[in-house]
């Protein structure tokens, strides 16, 4: 990328969900700290990967950016507008530029609408295409995602998982968006079908100049598709770097463990690999550890980690990390 124009800026984003106890007279007993101070930029035309384990807040981050969840605090700037402050018609108008592809292609398509109606719905709502122009646009979109344009009259149950995900992609493209949040778009699919969808997303990015936020837990796939990768753990981004930099120079102990946990499809490499095995489980986001979030499972943890929250600092160009010791270790 030569011109690095910031398309979306996330600043100190927080999303807390209340925990309620009791029936009718429910009391609020605490908060799930799903997203707890996340900041990053997405450049025009790039793919930013957001990776982390279940419950780390990666999907919530994606949904909060689109204002599907309203942030507890923080700002989301898209082309200069603060989405977190927009409401009603203005927000809806902005949403044209920001679309989403969902994880489960079986749950995200209305079974009682035809494929044509599903793809046309965004155009209907925003009034961009009507009548025969709309019909033509639906057929164009179906062809664009590699489906037969005659499929417009069929229902979702007639399609396989991979084909349904293509329909989801076509729907996301209907309003010619600039940014698409892909929330685990391939994890419900079979291995041979995953590559089809990833290749489709790459082709579309090239031909339409799209920008992606690609959320996934599969680090090898994220590394394949992304230009830069943000690693999340328990509501915060612990490390952000370019795809090769993150792999060759992981600075956060969690990233290091995550990288070493990914199995390689190569017995010769696996034979020689030394794994960093993390002890224990991820702590509850209702009551995250003090100081550094990762300290309870970290092999380098010292006293300071329990007391002081590590700053998200820059260690080289385009490489940020939230760890007290990441510089000294090298």
């Amino acid at each position: 990328m030569t011109d690095k124009q910031v398309l979306l800026r996330v600043e100190n984003l927080y999303k807390h969900f209340p925990i309620k106890k009791g029936g009718i007279f429910s009391r609020q007993t605490g908060y799930i700290h799903a997203v707890d101070g996340v900041s990053f930029d997405i450049y025009n035309g790039e793919t930013l990967g957001l990776v982390g384990e279940s419950g780390c807040g990666k999907s919530t981050t994606g949904r909060t950016i689109l204002q599907l969840h309203r942030p507890t605090a923080g700002n989301v700037f898209f082309e200069g507008d603060d989405l977190s402050k927009l409401k009603g018609g203005k927000l809806r108008h902005k949403r044209r530029d920001l679309q989403m592809i969902f994880q489960d292609p079986y749950a995200s398509l209305n079974p009682r609408m035809t494929v044509g109606q599903i793809i046309a719905e965004p155009m209907e709502i925003h009034g961009t295409y009507k009548g025969s122009a709309q019909l033509k646009r639906v057929q164009e979109l179906l062809q664009l995602v590699g489906l037969n344009s005659a499929f417009a009259n069929r229902y979702p149950h007639e399609f396989s998982g991979g084909q349904r995900q293509r329909i989801g992609v076509a729907r996301a493209l209907a309003l010619e968006p600039k940014l698409i949040v892909c929330d685990e778009p391939i994890s419900a699919l079979d291995v041979s079908i995953q590559a089809q969808i990833v290749n489709l997303l790459e082709d579309l990015q090239e031909s339409l100049g799209l920008t992606y936020l690609f959320i996934a837990h599969d680090l090898s796939m994220v590394r394949h598709i992304s230009d830069r990768i943000a690693v999340m753990y328990l509501g915060i981004v612990v490390e952000l770097a370019g795809r090769n930099e993150l792999y060759t120079n992981p600075a956060h102990p969690y990233t290091q463990a995550l990288l070493s946990a990914v199995p390689f499809p190569d017995p010769f490499v696996e034979e020689k690999r030394q794994r960093i095995i993390l002890e224990g489980d991820v702590p509850s986001p209702a009551n995250p550890p003090s100081g550094c979030r990762f300290r309870t499972r970290c092999r380098y943890a010292k006293e300071i980690c329990a007391v002081e929250k590590p700053e998200f600092r820059q260690i080289s160009e385009e490489h940020y990390v939230a760890c007290h010791f990441s510089l000294e270790k090298k």
């Binding site: 991979g162 079979d190 291995v191 041979s192 394949h224």
Partner: peptide, 25 residues
């Protein structure tokens, strides 16, 4: 062969397009 080609590898420094298997099971 197709299955192995459709898997991204962590240690690849250069971008390689995944070879997908067309069609359905």
């Amino acid at each position: 062969i197709g299955l192995l080609g459709s898997l991204p590898r962590m240690d690849e420094m250069e971008y390689r397009r995944l070879t997908s298997i067309d069609g359905l099971p």
